[in-house]
């Protein structure tokens, strides 16, 4: 079975065969399917289990008083929804499925056991959490310093890198179920503004959007449009030019 969590974490850590097997078992135990727009976790919920996205797309969001929604992050396969369970009491934001999304559901106790047993997993999960905060920092830069075109280009390029890591970006095409409204909620723009920006990116032959698939036609061009610096993803294996797992993403970083 494909294990996107393992594909992601091995960009940082090297796992021995036995450890890899444990990681595979982790996501193979119990899964849950979430319908589009369904909450995987609701703000205020007390989390007892950890949800790892296996397929589909989810988003961290917060609802504001007037019904407006800000999406803070997208979770693609291999991403963990709620590692804060160990430290925090309840969710301070919600996580919603953007399309049909399958999560592995793992009791917190199981992860605790694994963390004591495998120090390399502890480090890898810590890396993953740190990288998640780095991705959030980029959203702050978006709102402070990037114009509409840079924001969207940045998000697309980042998603391309992340889908490459989990080996789901054949021909630089990635799943893209998001609507203009959802893109607007994540970039702080409005839907028509998003539509106009997408048109520019299409006209510049940087991307193509067709049938819920985003194809990056010109990765280097998109990277320039985004003024993208991949350092915040901390893909040290790819940066050091190591062979193996890093091959999946090397040409992008």
């Amino acid at each position: 079975m494909r294990n996107p969590l393992r594909l992601k974490l091995e960009q940082y850590a090297g796992f021995e065969e036995r450890e890899g097997r444990r990681l595979d078992e982790l996501v193979a135990q119990r899964t849950q399917v979430f319908a589009p727009k369904q909450d995987i976790l609701t703000e205020g919920e007390k989390v007892k289990e950890i949800h790892i996205v296996l397929s589909g797309l989810a988003a961290r969001y917060k609802l504001l008083d007037e019904g407006e929604r800000q999406i803070m992050a997208f979770l693609i396969p291999g991403d963990i929804c709620d590692l804060e369970v160990f430290v925090l009491e309840e969710m301070d934001h919600g996580i919603s499925a953007m399309t049909e999304t399958v999560c592995a559901v793992v009791p917190a106790e199981t992860i605790k056991g694994l963390l004591t047993e495998m120090s390399c997993l502890t480090q890898a999960l810590w890396w993953s959490t740190m990288t998640d905060s780095a991705v959030l920092r980029e959203r702050i830069i978006d709102h402070g310093r990037r114009d509409a075109r840079e924001r969207i280009a940045h998000l697309f390029y980042e998603l391309l890198v992340r889908y490459r890591i989990i080996d789901e970006a054949k021909d630089n095409s990635i799943p893209f179920p998001l609507t203009q409204e959802e893109l607007a909620d994540s970039t702080g723009l409005t839907p028509v503004h998003v539509n106009r920006t997408l048109k520019q990116l299409r006209e510049d032959r940087l991307i193509e959007l067709k049938g819920r698939v985003l194809k990056v036609l010109d990765p280097q061009g998109l990277r320039r449009a985004a003024r993208f610096n991949p350092n915040y993803l901390h893909l040290r294996k790819a940066e050091e030019g190591l062979r193996g797992e890093a091959d999946r993403v090397k040409d992008l970083v």
């Binding site: 609507t179 203009q180 409204e181 839907p191 028509v192 539509n195 106009r196 048109k199």
Partner: peptide, 17 residues
């Protein structure tokens, strides 16, 4: 559907809300 016009061009809203 929110369509944006500028006299020459029209940017069609393919999705609606």
């Amino acid at each position: 559907y929110f369509h944006l016009r500028d006299g020459e061009d029209i940017l069609l809203d393919p999705e609606g809300r």
